[in-house]
Every structure is written in structure tokens, then in C-alpha cells.
């Protein structure tokens, strides 16, 4: 009993922080079902306005195309990024040499370059290529990240080198070893990398804000930010849009929480 009591402050602290963490999300979900007036009256119970809010939102904004764009960007970034960075991470570890280690060290420096410092030349690059307002321009700068390369290089260390040697003796090509042996074996690393990349791409805001200059091509974060920029905000509609923008990543998070945690902490173990 005394042991239990000694832990009481811990439980209180955890409860307060958990409430602080969950409440804004509860507020978002509940408000999506309430009218703007009810949201401002701080109604904290589910309401009946969900369908009305849906109707208003879809009348005002092209939610479907923003959702499609966001999915295309997130899936495209994830597939290309995982492929490119895992090949590189594998290459840096399996074929390591002094020169390649030096290249890796330089690439890792890119992690310290703030996106803001590359944003204007990147904008000019894609503008000159006629790719302003294109999804390709949103995806390309975010595909190759030093973080993912590092994640895959660290993970490759636990991949038994004997398997590679054995496959070479059996006459499997280097690409074959990677595609047919390494990739299936490293499923959990790919899962972690996929979750983190998908969520980052889905939530990206500054670069899409810069390169998608007219509002015909929008992503969900751009759509909700434009929705709140008017003089009169319908809070129920806004919270519904925010909920829709958050739903895919929240579902992925709740289903693949462990993979997500492994993804963000993976490269540093």
C-alpha cells in the first residue's frame, strides 16, 4: 500500500499530461460534429452538424483533389525515398571504403542545412524547369534524405555479411542480392522508414506552400490553412477539415505506433 502511495504523484503527473495531450484532439473530433456557434460555446459533446459541415466544406473547397494530391505526394515520396535511400545505405555499408565513408560524412552535413537556406534557389530551379504547381516539384527535393540513408546504413550492420558472401559464390548478382535477399529480410526497417516518410510527406507545409503557387493544386495542409485565412471562419467546418487532414496519419500512427517510434529513433541506436 505504501509502495502504491509513493507512486501516486507519478500517476497524477501522467494523468495530467495525458489529458493535456489528448484533449485538443478530442476537441478537434467533437467540434467537427458541431456548428460554429456550438464550437464557440465550448460544446464538448458530439453534435449533429457533421453532415452539414461536410456539405459546406465540400461546397467551399475541392477536398477530393487535395486528398488525392496529398496521397500521391505521400505515396510517391515514400516509394521513391525508401528505394533510393535503402540502396544508398546498403551501398555505404556493404561496399564501404575510405572514399565512400568520406562521402557519407559530407552527406550527413546536409542534415544541418535548414530547408529555408535552400528554398529560394530550389524555387528558381523548378520554376526554370516549368514545374511550378506540379506534384513532381513537391516530391523531388524530399526524396533523398541523409536521415534515411543513415537509418538504412545502421540497419544494414545487423544484416549478416555471410549471406552476401554465400549469394555471391552462388552467382547471384549484386543487384539481385539487394532486391531478392536484403529487401525481404529488412521488412521491419522498411516499415519504420515508410511510416516516418509517409507522415513527413503528408504533413509537409513550407515547400508545397512555396512551389504550389496557385490554389488549383492544393494539399490538405494547404487547404486547411487557406480555409482559416478568410475573415469569417466557420469553426465547425474548419475542425472537420483539420480532422480529415489528420485522419490518415492518425490511423497509421495508431496501427503502426511501434514502427513509427522505431523510425524516429532508429538511426541513432
Amino acid at each position: 500500500m505504501i509502495r502504491r502511495l509513493r507512486r501516486l504523484p507519478g500517476y497524477v503527473f501522467l494523468s495530467v499530461f495525458a489529458l493535456f495531450s489528448v484533449f485538443p484532439l478530442y476537441f478537434m473530433v467533437v467540434s467537427a460534429t458541431n456548428s460554429s456557434a456550438d464550437v464557440l460555446d465550448s460544446r464538448l459533446l458530439p453534435g449533429t452538424q457533421l453532415l452539414e459541415n461536410f456539405a459546406k466544406l465540400f461546397a467551399e473547397q475541392d477536398v477530393v483533389s487535395a486528398m488525392v494530391n496529398s496521397f500521391l505526394i505521400a505515396v510517391g515520396t515514400t516509394v521513391l525515398s525508401l528505394l533510393l535511400c535503402s540502396i544508398a545505405g546498403y551501398g555505404f555499408e556493404v561496399f564501404h571504403s575510405r572514399a565512400k565513408d568520406a562521402v557519407l560524412a559530407i552527406l550527413l552535413l546536409a542534415m544541418m542545412i535548414p530547408f529555408a537556406a535552400t528554398m529560394i534557389p530550389l524555387f528558381e530551379l523548378f520554376a526554370n524547369a516549368g514545374l511550378v504547381n506540379s506534384l513532381i516539384a513537391v516530391i523531388v527535393p524530399t526524396i533523398a534524405t541523409p536521415f534515411l540513408i543513415l537509418l538504412f546504413r545502421q540497419a544494414t550492420r545487423s544484416f549478416p555479411h555471410e549471406i552476401i558472401e554465400a549469394a555471391r559464390i552462388d552467382g547471384v548478382s549484386e543487384v539481385g542480392i539487394f532486391a531478392r535477399i536484403y529487401m525481404p529480410t529488412m521488412r521491419s526497417t522498411y516499415a519504420a522508414a515508410a511510416v516516418i516518410t509517409f507522415m513527413t510527406a503528408w504533413n509537409n507545409f513550407l515547400w508545397p506552400r512555396v512551389i504550389l503557387i496557385n490554389n488549383d493544386v492544393q494539399t490538405m495542409p494547404l487547404l486547411i490553412s487557406n480555409l482559416s485565412a478568410g475573415y469569417v471562419t466557420d469553426y465547425g467546418v474548419l475542425m472537420l477539415a483539420v480532422l480529415l487532414a489528420s485522419l490518415p496519419t492518425m490511423v497509421i500512427f495508431l496501427v503502426l505506433q511501434r514502427a513509427f517510434a522505431a523510425g524516429i529513433t532508429g538511426a541513432i541506436k
Binding site: 495525458a18 484532439l25 504533413n203 507545409f205 489528420s246 500512427f253 495508431l254
Partner: peptide, 23 residues
């Protein structure tokens, strides 16, 4: 506890900013 406290990471920065703006 872990899920509850980690959950805010699932929403985008713009999303939570707008929720806070409303609150």
C-alpha cells in the same frame, strides 16, 4: 500512457496550430 502522450506527433503542425487557434 505512452500512446496518449505520443499521439500529438500524429497530427501535422498546421492541423494542431489551427486547433490551438480555435481553442
Amino acid at each position: 500512457w505512452r500512446t496518449a502522450i505520443f499521439l500529438p506527433c500524429a497530427v501535422s503542425l498546421v492541423s494542431y496550430s489551427l486547433v490551438f487557434r480555435t481553442m
